[in-house]
Amino acid sequence: MTTAVSLANLTKTFGEHRAVDGLSFDVPAGSIFGLLGRNGAGKTTTIRMIMDILRPDTGTVTILGSADALAVKDRIGYLPEERGLYPKMKLTDMLEFAGSIKGMAVADARRAGAQWLDRLELGAWKDKKVEDLSKGMQQKVQFISAIMNKPDLLILDEPFSGMDPVNQEVFKDLILELNRTGCTIIFSTHVMESAEKLCREIALINHGRAVLHGPIAEIKKKFGTNTVQLEFDGDGSFLDGLPGVEKVHHGGHSAEIRLAQGADHQAILKAAVGRLVIRHFSVVSPTLHSIFIQQVGLEQGGNGNA
Protein backbone atom coordinates (compact mmCIF):
# COMPACT_ATOMS: atom_id res chain seq x y z
CA MET A 1 0.00 0.00 0.00
CA THR A 2 1.41 3.38 -0.91
CA THR A 3 1.56 6.24 1.53
CA ALA A 4 -0.14 9.59 0.97
CA VAL A 5 1.42 11.39 3.93
CA SER A 6 4.29 10.31 6.10
CA LEU A 7 5.43 12.09 9.25
CA ALA A 8 8.79 11.25 10.77
CA ASN A 9 9.74 12.45 14.22
CA LEU A 10 7.95 15.80 13.92
CA THR A 11 8.53 18.35 16.69
CA LYS A 12 7.24 21.88 17.16
CA THR A 13 7.74 24.12 20.16
CA PHE A 14 6.06 27.47 20.82
CA GLY A 15 8.06 29.28 23.46
CA GLU A 16 8.04 26.91 26.43
CA HIS A 17 5.17 24.83 25.13
CA ARG A 18 5.97 21.69 23.15
CA ALA A 19 2.91 21.37 20.90
CA VAL A 20 4.10 18.37 18.87
CA ASP A 21 6.65 16.01 20.33
CA GLY A 22 8.35 13.45 18.10
CA LEU A 23 5.25 12.53 16.14
CA SER A 24 5.50 9.80 13.49
CA PHE A 25 2.76 8.08 11.51
CA ASP A 26 1.84 7.19 7.94
CA VAL A 27 -1.43 7.82 6.16
CA PRO A 28 -2.11 5.10 3.58
CA ALA A 29 -3.18 6.35 0.15
CA GLY A 30 -6.90 6.01 -0.45
CA SER A 31 -7.80 5.76 3.22
CA ILE A 32 -10.00 7.88 5.41
CA PHE A 33 -7.68 8.73 8.24
CA GLY A 34 -8.74 10.18 11.57
CA LEU A 35 -6.40 12.38 13.56
CA LEU A 36 -7.90 12.21 17.01
CA GLY A 37 -7.16 13.97 20.23
CA ARG A 38 -8.46 16.42 22.78
CA ASN A 39 -8.49 20.14 22.20
CA GLY A 40 -4.91 21.32 22.45
CA ALA A 41 -3.43 17.88 21.80
CA GLY A 42 -1.50 19.20 18.78
CA LYS A 43 -3.85 18.22 15.92
CA THR A 44 -4.01 21.63 14.25
CA THR A 45 -0.28 22.22 14.66
CA THR A 46 0.38 18.84 13.05
CA ILE A 47 -1.92 19.62 10.14
CA ARG A 48 -0.32 23.03 9.64
CA MET A 49 3.08 21.37 9.47
CA ILE A 50 1.75 18.85 6.94
CA MET A 51 0.55 21.83 4.87
CA ASP A 52 3.88 23.68 5.32
CA ILE A 53 2.06 26.60 6.90
CA LEU A 54 4.23 26.06 9.96
CA ARG A 55 7.80 24.81 9.75
CA PRO A 56 8.62 21.93 12.12
CA ASP A 57 11.57 22.41 14.48
CA THR A 58 12.75 18.91 13.64
CA GLY A 59 11.47 15.99 11.60
CA THR A 60 10.21 15.64 8.06
CA VAL A 61 6.92 15.51 6.21
CA THR A 62 6.51 13.66 2.95
CA ILE A 63 3.27 14.51 1.22
CA LEU A 64 2.03 12.92 -2.01
CA GLY A 65 5.57 11.74 -2.59
CA SER A 66 7.06 15.22 -2.23
CA ALA A 67 9.16 16.68 0.56
CA ASP A 68 7.83 20.13 -0.34
CA ALA A 69 4.12 20.67 0.30
CA LEU A 70 4.21 23.83 -1.82
CA ALA A 71 4.96 21.76 -4.92
CA VAL A 72 1.83 19.65 -4.47
CA LYS A 73 -0.59 22.18 -2.95
CA ASP A 74 -2.65 22.19 -6.13
CA ARG A 75 -3.45 18.51 -5.53
CA ILE A 76 -4.51 19.07 -1.93
CA GLY A 77 -7.82 20.29 -0.62
CA TYR A 78 -7.57 21.98 2.77
CA LEU A 79 -10.30 23.06 5.12
CA PRO A 80 -8.67 24.66 8.14
CA GLU A 81 -10.34 24.68 11.53
CA GLU A 82 -10.50 28.46 11.42
CA ARG A 83 -12.10 28.77 8.05
CA GLY A 84 -13.13 31.92 6.37
CA LEU A 85 -14.11 33.57 3.14
CA TYR A 86 -13.81 37.12 1.87
CA PRO A 87 -17.05 38.59 3.25
CA LYS A 88 -17.40 41.19 0.50
CA MET A 89 -16.97 38.84 -2.45
CA LYS A 90 -19.78 37.34 -4.48
CA LEU A 91 -20.02 33.55 -4.23
CA THR A 92 -19.05 32.94 -7.85
CA ASP A 93 -16.09 35.33 -7.60
CA MET A 94 -14.99 33.77 -4.33
CA LEU A 95 -15.07 30.24 -5.76
CA GLU A 96 -13.41 31.37 -8.97
CA PHE A 97 -10.58 32.77 -6.86
CA ALA A 98 -10.41 29.69 -4.62
CA GLY A 99 -10.17 27.42 -7.65
CA SER A 100 -7.72 29.60 -9.54
CA ILE A 101 -5.21 29.66 -6.68
CA LYS A 102 -5.41 25.87 -6.75
CA GLY A 103 -4.17 25.86 -10.31
CA MET A 104 -7.50 25.76 -12.14
CA ALA A 105 -8.00 27.96 -15.19
CA VAL A 106 -10.15 30.95 -14.27
CA ALA A 107 -13.01 29.94 -16.59
CA ASP A 108 -12.92 26.33 -15.36
CA ALA A 109 -12.95 27.47 -11.75
CA ARG A 110 -15.94 29.69 -12.43
CA ARG A 111 -17.86 26.88 -14.14
CA ALA A 112 -16.99 24.31 -11.46
CA GLY A 113 -17.97 26.78 -8.73
CA ALA A 114 -21.37 27.39 -10.34
CA GLN A 115 -21.99 23.65 -10.74
CA TRP A 116 -21.18 22.98 -7.11
CA LEU A 117 -23.41 25.83 -5.95
CA ASP A 118 -26.29 24.34 -7.96
CA ARG A 119 -25.63 20.89 -6.57
CA LEU A 120 -25.62 22.11 -2.97
CA GLU A 121 -28.79 24.15 -3.55
CA LEU A 122 -27.06 27.52 -3.44
CA GLY A 123 -27.59 28.30 -7.13
CA ALA A 124 -30.03 31.10 -6.33
CA TRP A 125 -27.40 32.79 -4.16
CA LYS A 126 -24.48 32.75 -6.53
CA ASP A 127 -24.51 36.53 -7.14
CA LYS A 128 -24.93 37.33 -3.45
CA LYS A 129 -22.06 38.38 -1.25
CA VAL A 130 -20.60 35.90 1.21
CA GLU A 131 -21.60 38.10 4.15
CA ASP A 132 -25.28 37.87 3.13
CA LEU A 133 -25.29 34.10 3.66
CA SER A 134 -26.28 32.15 6.76
CA LYS A 135 -23.56 30.30 8.63
CA GLY A 136 -24.69 26.95 7.26
CA MET A 137 -24.56 28.26 3.71
CA GLN A 138 -21.09 29.69 4.28
CA GLN A 139 -19.95 26.27 5.48
CA LYS A 140 -21.13 24.80 2.19
CA VAL A 141 -19.22 27.42 0.20
CA GLN A 142 -16.12 26.78 2.28
CA PHE A 143 -16.42 23.09 1.66
CA ILE A 144 -16.82 23.63 -2.08
CA SER A 145 -13.71 25.78 -2.12
CA ALA A 146 -11.76 22.94 -0.49
CA ILE A 147 -12.84 20.21 -2.90
CA MET A 148 -13.53 21.96 -6.21
CA ASN A 149 -10.03 21.26 -7.53
CA LYS A 150 -10.71 17.49 -7.29
CA PRO A 151 -7.87 16.93 -4.83
CA ASP A 152 -5.87 13.73 -4.41
CA LEU A 153 -5.62 14.50 -0.71
CA LEU A 154 -8.24 16.27 1.36
CA ILE A 155 -7.29 17.56 4.79
CA LEU A 156 -10.16 18.60 7.03
CA ASP A 157 -9.49 20.13 10.43
CA GLU A 158 -12.53 19.63 12.70
CA PRO A 159 -14.85 19.62 9.68
CA PHE A 160 -18.05 19.02 11.62
CA SER A 161 -17.61 21.50 14.44
CA GLY A 162 -20.44 24.01 14.54
CA MET A 163 -22.29 22.22 11.76
CA ASP A 164 -25.97 21.33 11.89
CA PRO A 165 -26.93 17.65 11.46
CA VAL A 166 -28.27 18.15 7.93
CA ASN A 167 -25.03 19.69 6.70
CA GLN A 168 -23.07 17.02 8.56
CA GLU A 169 -24.86 14.35 6.52
CA VAL A 170 -24.32 16.27 3.26
CA PHE A 171 -20.61 16.58 3.92
CA LYS A 172 -20.20 13.04 5.15
CA ASP A 173 -21.71 11.79 1.89
CA LEU A 174 -19.45 14.09 -0.12
CA ILE A 175 -16.39 12.89 1.78
CA LEU A 176 -17.30 9.26 1.13
CA GLU A 177 -17.98 10.01 -2.54
CA LEU A 178 -14.57 11.68 -2.91
CA ASN A 179 -12.91 8.79 -1.14
CA ARG A 180 -14.50 6.31 -3.54
CA THR A 181 -12.87 8.17 -6.45
CA GLY A 182 -9.46 7.61 -4.84
CA CYS A 183 -9.02 10.74 -2.75
CA THR A 184 -7.18 10.22 0.53
CA ILE A 185 -8.93 11.96 3.40
CA ILE A 186 -7.34 13.11 6.63
CA PHE A 187 -9.60 14.64 9.17
CA SER A 188 -9.04 15.71 12.68
CA THR A 189 -11.71 15.65 15.34
CA HIS A 190 -12.26 15.30 19.02
CA VAL A 191 -15.71 13.79 18.37
CA MET A 192 -15.04 10.05 18.46
CA GLU A 193 -18.47 9.05 17.14
CA SER A 194 -17.92 10.72 13.76
CA ALA A 195 -14.42 9.25 13.52
CA GLU A 196 -15.72 5.79 14.32
CA LYS A 197 -18.32 6.03 11.58
CA LEU A 198 -15.99 7.31 8.86
CA CYS A 199 -12.41 6.23 9.44
CA ARG A 200 -10.57 3.10 8.61
CA GLU A 201 -7.35 4.24 10.27
CA ILE A 202 -6.63 6.61 13.10
CA ALA A 203 -3.83 8.20 14.99
CA LEU A 204 -4.74 9.18 18.53
CA ILE A 205 -2.49 11.94 19.79
CA ASN A 206 -2.12 13.40 23.23
CA HIS A 207 0.39 16.03 24.35
CA GLY A 208 1.82 16.01 20.84
CA ARG A 209 2.61 12.28 20.83
CA ALA A 210 0.86 9.41 19.05
CA VAL A 211 -0.73 7.27 21.74
CA LEU A 212 -2.39 4.84 19.36
CA HIS A 213 -1.96 4.44 15.66
CA GLY A 214 -3.32 1.98 13.11
CA PRO A 215 -6.50 0.56 11.57
CA ILE A 216 -9.50 0.92 13.90
CA ALA A 217 -10.31 -2.80 13.63
CA GLU A 218 -6.85 -3.76 14.91
CA ILE A 219 -6.94 -1.24 17.69
CA LYS A 220 -10.30 -2.51 18.85
CA LYS A 221 -9.11 -6.11 18.70
CA LYS A 222 -6.22 -5.16 20.92
CA PHE A 223 -8.65 -3.82 23.47
CA GLY A 224 -10.64 -7.09 23.31
CA THR A 225 -14.35 -7.84 23.50
CA ASN A 226 -14.66 -7.12 27.18
CA THR A 227 -17.24 -4.40 27.00
CA VAL A 228 -20.94 -4.63 27.75
CA GLN A 229 -23.46 -2.26 26.24
CA LEU A 230 -26.56 -1.95 28.37
CA GLU A 231 -29.81 -0.04 27.84
CA PHE A 232 -32.33 0.00 30.63
CA ASP A 233 -34.93 1.79 32.73
CA GLY A 234 -34.13 2.41 36.37
CA ASP A 235 -31.18 3.51 38.49
CA GLY A 236 -27.94 1.98 37.20
CA SER A 237 -25.61 3.46 39.78
CA PHE A 238 -25.02 0.07 41.48
CA LEU A 239 -23.26 -1.19 38.30
CA ASP A 240 -19.97 0.41 39.39
CA GLY A 241 -19.84 -1.83 42.44
CA LEU A 242 -20.37 -5.17 40.71
CA PRO A 243 -17.48 -7.66 40.80
CA GLY A 244 -15.31 -7.70 37.67
CA VAL A 245 -16.33 -4.17 36.60
CA GLU A 246 -13.39 -1.95 35.79
CA LYS A 247 -15.11 1.20 34.57
CA VAL A 248 -18.64 2.31 33.78
CA HIS A 249 -19.49 5.12 31.35
CA HIS A 250 -22.97 6.13 32.45
CA GLY A 251 -25.33 7.58 29.89
CA GLY A 252 -28.66 8.16 31.67
CA HIS A 253 -30.61 5.17 30.44
CA SER A 254 -27.59 3.36 29.11
CA ALA A 255 -24.17 2.29 30.29
CA GLU A 256 -20.97 1.07 28.70
CA ILE A 257 -19.28 -1.29 31.14
CA ARG A 258 -15.64 -2.23 30.76
CA LEU A 259 -14.85 -5.56 32.42
CA ALA A 260 -11.61 -6.75 33.91
CA GLN A 261 -9.66 -9.42 32.01
CA GLY A 262 -11.47 -12.76 32.30
CA ALA A 263 -14.57 -11.36 34.03
CA ASP A 264 -17.91 -13.00 33.19
CA HIS A 265 -20.33 -10.73 31.35
CA GLN A 266 -23.22 -13.10 32.08
CA ALA A 267 -22.71 -12.37 35.80
CA ILE A 268 -23.33 -8.70 35.03
CA LEU A 269 -26.54 -9.55 33.22
CA LYS A 270 -27.73 -11.73 36.10
CA ALA A 271 -27.00 -8.99 38.61
CA ALA A 272 -28.83 -6.43 36.54
CA VAL A 273 -31.95 -8.45 35.91
CA GLY A 274 -34.44 -7.73 38.65
CA ARG A 275 -32.88 -4.39 39.57
CA LEU A 276 -33.33 -2.82 36.13
CA VAL A 277 -35.71 -3.24 33.21
CA ILE A 278 -33.25 -4.40 30.56
CA ARG A 279 -34.03 -3.23 27.03
CA HIS A 280 -30.76 -4.13 25.36
CA PHE A 281 -27.70 -6.15 26.31
CA SER A 282 -24.71 -6.82 24.05
CA VAL A 283 -21.08 -7.80 24.37
CA VAL A 284 -18.96 -5.67 22.05
CA SER A 285 -15.57 -4.16 21.39
CA PRO A 286 -15.10 -0.93 23.28
CA THR A 287 -16.12 2.23 21.38
CA LEU A 288 -13.43 4.58 20.18
CA HIS A 289 -14.80 6.99 22.72
CA SER A 290 -14.01 4.73 25.66
CA ILE A 291 -10.66 3.70 24.22
CA PHE A 292 -9.89 7.37 23.90
CA ILE A 293 -10.89 8.15 27.45
CA GLN A 294 -9.01 5.13 28.74
CA GLN A 295 -5.82 6.00 26.87
CA VAL A 296 -5.85 9.71 27.58
CA GLY A 297 -6.75 9.00 31.20
CA LEU A 298 -3.79 6.64 31.48
CA GLU A 299 -1.53 9.21 29.91
CA GLN A 300 -2.58 11.81 32.39
CA GLY A 301 -2.33 9.31 35.26
CA GLY A 302 1.21 8.56 34.10
CA ASN A 303 2.00 12.25 34.07
CA GLY A 304 0.60 12.65 37.54
CA ASN A 305 -2.05 15.26 36.74
CA ALA A 306 -5.15 13.09 36.59
Binding site: M51, I53, P80, Y86
Partner: peptide, 16 residues
Protein backbone atom coordinates in the same frame (compact mmCIF):
# COMPACT_ATOMS: atom_id res chain seq x y z
CA UNK B 1 -9.18 41.56 7.57
CA UNK B 2 -7.79 38.34 6.15
CA UNK B 3 -6.69 37.43 9.65
CA UNK B 4 -9.95 38.35 11.34
CA UNK B 5 -12.19 36.78 8.68
CA UNK B 6 -10.02 33.68 9.02
CA UNK B 7 -9.56 33.48 5.26
CA UNK B 8 -5.79 33.68 5.78
CA UNK B 9 -5.26 29.99 6.46
CA UNK B 10 -7.43 29.02 3.50
CA UNK B 11 -5.12 31.11 1.31
CA UNK B 12 -2.03 29.62 2.93
CA UNK B 13 -3.44 26.18 2.14
CA UNK B 14 -3.08 27.07 -1.52
CA UNK B 15 0.15 29.04 -1.65
CA UNK B 16 3.21 30.06 0.31
Amino acid sequence: QEKSSRVMEVLLGSMS
